[in-house]
């Protein structure tokens, strides 16, 4: 037999497909960030707006660098632990529930409204109830994170598990593959892009949920700090802490994106 193929690729196992990114793409977010801060500073100094409504970004930075280690860091670590613990439970739990649900159409139909109900329920409304049942323990906050993050992970993963192309399924059936083989070799890897969408949304939801729990009660956490600073009219610190929360969300999101790039190599 002869080959008529002209295109050749070096035999590197699992080499990711070329993903060319212009250097401008890397600095674009930084440029935008600098521009926003500059516009903000300009607006504050030009309008003469009160610092209790909108402090200048430089004032926020000054106050934060003065108080960060003593006043923020312990709360940052506390909240971060709540987020990560909850997320670490929510990820396998969400995927597991989706895997079980996806096996039978009837279960998908039955559970989907319930999952959506949980996705749209802001857990902040439930926190006082949880506190009533379980006290002010930090475990309650972890549970809030789990309850908020699991459904969104589950919902996206379930979409991935239930949208496998018919021909791909037919190939598995043509080999007489078992249900487990079909799941491991086809349905799960095929769903990975949607699974990662779920994971990315999950870390955002986890951060939001931890904030909700902090705000509702307790004497620890960044959310508690924000509330306290607001009531003390320490507006710079309140804004600074909000930015720290945003930073947590961004960093977690980017970590998941980095993992996604190392796992999903076949998408151009």
């Amino acid at each position: 037999m002869t080959t008529t193929t002209a295109r050749q690729t070096p035999p590197v196992k699992g080499k990711p497909l070329k993903r060319k990114t212009e250097p401008i793409c890397y600095i674009a977010p930084i440029i935008l960030f600098v521009a926003v801060v500059a516009a903000w500073a300009l607006f504050v100094s030009a309008s003469g707006i009160s610092r209790t409504i909108l402090p200048s970004p430089f004032a926020i930075f000054r106050e934060m660098s003065k108080n960060f280690v003593r006043d923020i860091l312990p709360h940052l670590l506390f909240t971060l632990r709540v987020i990560l613990t909850g997320y670490a439970v929510a990820v396998p739990l969400g995927i597991l529930i989706a895997a079980v649900c996806s096996q039978y159409r009837i279960i998908i139909k039955a559970t989907t409204p319930l999952i959506i109900l949980l996705v749209v329920t802001p857990m902040i409304t439930m926190v006082p109830l949880f506190m009533l049942w379980m006290g002010f323990d930090s475990k309650v906050r972890v549970i809030v994170v789990i309850l908020q993050a699991t459904p969104i992970i589950c919902l996206n993963t379930l979409t991935g598990f239930t949208t496998t192309e018919g021909a791909k399924l037919e190939l598995m059936r043509a080999m007489g593959a078992t249900r487990l083989q079909t799941f491991v070799k086809l349905i799960f890897p095929n769903a990975l892009p949607q699974v990662f969408t779920g994971l990315k949304l999950g870390c955002i939801f986890s951060t939001i949920a931890a904030m909700s729990a902090d705000l509702a009660a307790g004497k620890e956490g960044l959310g508690y700090r924000i509330q306290q600073y607001s009531s003390l009219i320490m507006t710079e610190m309140a804004y600074g802490t909000i930015l720290i929360v945003a930073l947590i969300g961004i960093v977690l999101f980017q970590i998941v994106v980095m993992i996604e790039r190392r796992v999903i190599l076949w998408v151009r």
């Binding site: 037999m1 002869t2 080959t3 008529t4 193929t5 295109r7 050749q8 690729t9 035999p11 590197v12 196992k13 699992g14 080499k15 497909l17 190599l265 076949w266 151009r268």
Partner: peptide, 20 residues
């Protein structure tokens, strides 16, 4: 080897021509 796909065996399918 027989079908001349040796060079491309570690490539992803989307990198191949329709015939390959």
């Amino acid at each position: 080897e027989m079908t001349g796909l040796r060079e491309q065996r570690h490539a992803y399918p989307t990198e191949l021509s329709g015939g390959s």
